[in-house]
Amino acid sequence: MEVIISDIQRMSSEDGPGLRVTAFFKGCSLRCEWCHNPECIAFHGELIWNENRCIRCGTCIGVCPNGCLAFDADTLKIDRAKCVACFRCEDACPGAALEGKGKAFTPEKLCRELVKDRAYFGTDGGVTLSGGEALMQPGSVEVLQCLKSRGIQTAVDTCGMVPAETLERALPFTDIVLYDIKVLDNGLHEKLTGCGNGTILENFDLVCRWAEKGGRLWVRTPLIPGATDSPGNIEKIGALIKSKGASVERWELCAFNNLCRDKYRRLNIPWKYRETSLLTESEAKRLAAAAEKTLACAQIRLTGATMKEGETNG
């Protein structure tokens, strides 16, 4: 079964251990307000216009079969209701300003791309399926299977909001699970992500049991200003992890990232966090200290960019 991919990131150093290649699957089961991969929220293909590459030649307008494209002064307007993501405009665009997010790959073809960096994986690197929510696409299990058959170490970066059966089918072909736990308060989780966290916590139990039998499990918690960054939330997540004994290898606190602002603009999606600054170094360190205090697991890491006190961040 084909999978829909938005991007492939070569030489990724932040999606699991070692050097990796990460495939970003399109479509997600959650709607986190802070999502830093907005192009992976919708399951269908989407067109992105990179204005700085556009030479305003208008070629795209002529090739669009549905009349979705028009210039409004200097800006290309995309009628997203009419766009069927045929990406003929992308093909024709001489400036490579138009970019189609969401291309179909057979698992075999995707694997061929993903293993090109094999020589660089070393003992602890490999391929990470991310997104979006990779496991929401049934073909992702075939991709994992295909990678394992080639002897590639696999990681799945999941939000946990997936059918338990899919997880159970995927885990035998997975070496590492990167499992997001964002907020433990169910009501707040629903408010921030569009879903309660019941399924996510049930699946977490499932993954922990898998980890006890030898799987590697990393928990990731995004530190989102005003949303997940209360010390109380961090302490509760820490306690949950600790309650799972030694099944969690590592807990990563991922500092809020605002480099995705342009992606929201290009998708014509308003973003609540548009004006939000990075965490300051001391805020991030305070949260990391709170996490450390919980003694949740052996490795607790703070990742991502922060800013110095007093620095404005634009």
């Binding site: 070692g18 660089y120 994986f121």
Partner: peptide, 17 residues
């Protein structure tokens, strides 16, 4: 240290490819 290990993987891959 973890990232330096990643750079090391890159160099080992470079030997190969």
């Amino acid at each position: 240290g973890e990232h330096k290990a990643k750079l090391k993987s890159f160099l080992k891959g470079y030997v190969q490819n």
